[in-house]
Structures are given as structure tokens and as C-alpha cells.
């Protein structure tokens, strides 16, 4: 059983929901990332989405754009990100890692080379924002044969027949984008998410995580009632940005936020 599947199975047994924080690798320094990953786990993270920085993050709001820019000042590459995962795996063999980012760095490395290196490093899943299932048909074999989960997005505007297709193409979990917008947007409408989740559940049998606009324990808890996991990105990345010159302070602030979300989710 894949690590991601195992985590969701364990949580379901305990009646809990997954907490999935996102950070951008190499933000603000390369050597800050692995300690931050361990801090996320200690604060209650079940799965980590590790962002691969890209020069043109088209689907992201200002918070994650700036995180990419900070990481790229030091040329944080896909090779570096894989090395970070391998480093993390030396002391953590349980927490699933999902690489999230844009296609071009993978395209440049080569799909097969990347898939093999990702498995070798200890990556569990990949979410390439600009690779929808239609375009993935030519390359998904490289990932599937290595049991790397392919995580796809579903949007509020996604039609039923596409939801069904995405549900079949994806594995691990699907990522429901809670609103029309980019990452870091403000108001998430819990009732609207609940209605769409009901629609998604008809076609998707794997777990559904919800992200975009979740920035407090309260919202996380409310959203978690209707899904299997909550994904928190910009709220965490903002704390990293505010403490860019002090790694300890950043870890403390992020741990406090993630810890409060854990408490709210489990209450």
C-alpha cells in the first residue's frame, strides 16, 4: 500500500481528517526546508506538499509567487528539491511527500528520469498544476509503473464528466480547489464547498483534499467536515516570509499555526 493510501486509511480508522501543509522548497534558504518539514510533522502534518519553485507560477497568488522568487534567488532546482526529500527520508520514513509545481522543470529533466529520481528520493506523489489528465496520457505511464501517485485538481467549474475522468486518472487523493481564483485568495464559502463535494463524491472514490483560502483553524475544521483532508499553503508561506531572516522564529510561527489547525481538526 502506498504511503498516501496508508495515511488516509489510518486516519479514517481514527475518525480524523488529514492536515496537508504546503511549503515552497528553498524558501527562503535551501537549508531551511528539511528542518521545516520535520517541524510540520511534529506540529501535526499528515502529508507534506513540497513546492518546486518555478519562474512563472501562473496559478498562484502573490504569496507563493514571492516564495518562488525567494527560492530562485538561490537557484533552487528540481535536483535540489529531490535531494531535500532524500535528506528528510533519512529520519522520517512514514510521512508522505507530494511534489507540487509546474511542468517545465520536469519536462526539462525528462519524465522518466524525474520519475525514477523521485522514487529513489522517497517522493510519494506528484501534482503538476499545468498537467491536466488529457495532456498526461503520454507520460503518466512513467509515474504509474513506479507507484507514484498522480494527484489532479478539480475546480468549482469542472463539469461532471471531467470529474469522473479525473477521479479515474488520479490516485492518492484529488485536490479540490475551493474557489475561482489563485492560491492565497481570501473568502472560502463552506456551504459552496459542501455542495460541490457532494457532486464530486458521486464520481470520485479516492480521498478528496480541499485547498485555496484555508487560513485559520476554524475554516480548516469547518471544511474538514465535508472532505478527507485540508491543504494549507499561503497562510504558512506568509509566516515564512515574515520571518525570512530568522529560521527559528519561522519554525515557531509555522508550528504554532499548524498545531492550532491540528487541534481544531481533531476537536
Amino acid at each position: 500500500m502506498s504511503r498516501i493510501k496508508q495515511v488516509f486509511a489510518d486516519l479514517e480508522r481514527q475518525g480524523k481528517k488529514a492536515l496537508i501543509p504546503y511549503i515552497t522548497a528553498g524558501d527562503p534558504q535551501k537549508d531551511a526546508t528539511v528542518p521545516m518539514m520535520h517541524a510540520l510533522v511534529d506540529a501535526g502534518a499528515d502529508i507534506i506538499e513540497l513546492g518546486v519553485p518555478f519562474s512563472d507560477p501562473m496559478a498562484d497568488g502573490p504569496t507563493i509567487q514571492l516564495a518562488c522568487e525567494r527560492a530562485l534567488v538561490h537557484n533552487t532546482s528540481l535536483h535540489d528539491v529531490l535531494a531535500m526529500v532524500a535528506e528528510f527520508r533519512k529520519t522520517n520514513s512514514n510521512t508522505p511527500i507530494v511534489l507540487m509545481g509546474y511542468l517545465n522543470p520536469v519536462e526539462r529533466m525528462g519524465y522518466e528520469t524525474f520519475a525514477a529520481a523521485a522514487v529513489e528520493a522517497g517522493v510519494d506523489g506528484v501534482l503538476m498544476v499545468d498537467l491536466p489528465p488529457e495532456e498526461a496520457v503520454d507520460v503518466e505511464g512513467f509515474f504509474k509503473t513506479r507507484d507514484l501517485d498522480m494527484i489532479y485538481l478539480i475546480a468549482p467549474t469542472t463539469k461532471d464528466e471531467r470529474i469522473e475522468r479525473i477521479g479515474q486518472a488520479g490516485s492518492g487523493y484529488v485536490y479540490y480547489v475551493s474557489l475561482k481564483g489563485v492560491t492565497g485568495s481570501k473568502a472560502l464559502d463552506v456551504d459552496d464547498v459542501a455542495r460541490n463535494l457532494e457532486r464530486i463524491r458521486k464520481y470520485v472514490s479516492i480521498p478528496v483534499g480541499v485547498g485555496f483560502g484555508i487560513n485559520t483553524g476554524e475554516t480548516a475544521a469547518a471544511v474538514s467536515k465535508v472532505c478527507d483532508g485540508v491543504i494549507v499553503g499561503s497562510a504558512i508561506v506568509n509566516l515564512i516570509a515574515e520571518n525570512a531572516d530568522n529560521a527559528n522564529a519561522a519554525q515557531e510561527a509555522v508550528s504554532a499555526l499548524v498545531g492550532s489547525m491540528r487541534t481544531a481538526l481533531d476537536a
Binding site: 501562473m58 496559478a59 511542468l103 498544476v129 499545468d130 491536466p132 467549474t157 469542472t158 480547489v177
Partner: peptide, 14 residues
């Protein structure tokens, strides 16, 4: 060519 976009744009492009 192709359509390499986030799912959030798929419906509009369709």
C-alpha cells in the same frame, strides 16, 4: 501546442 493549464481554466477553454 496543447492545453497545459490548471484545472481552474479548463471549463472556460472548453
Amino acid at each position: 501546442g496543447g492545453r497545459f493549464v490548471s484545472e481552474t481554466l479548463s471549463a472556460a477553454l472548453d
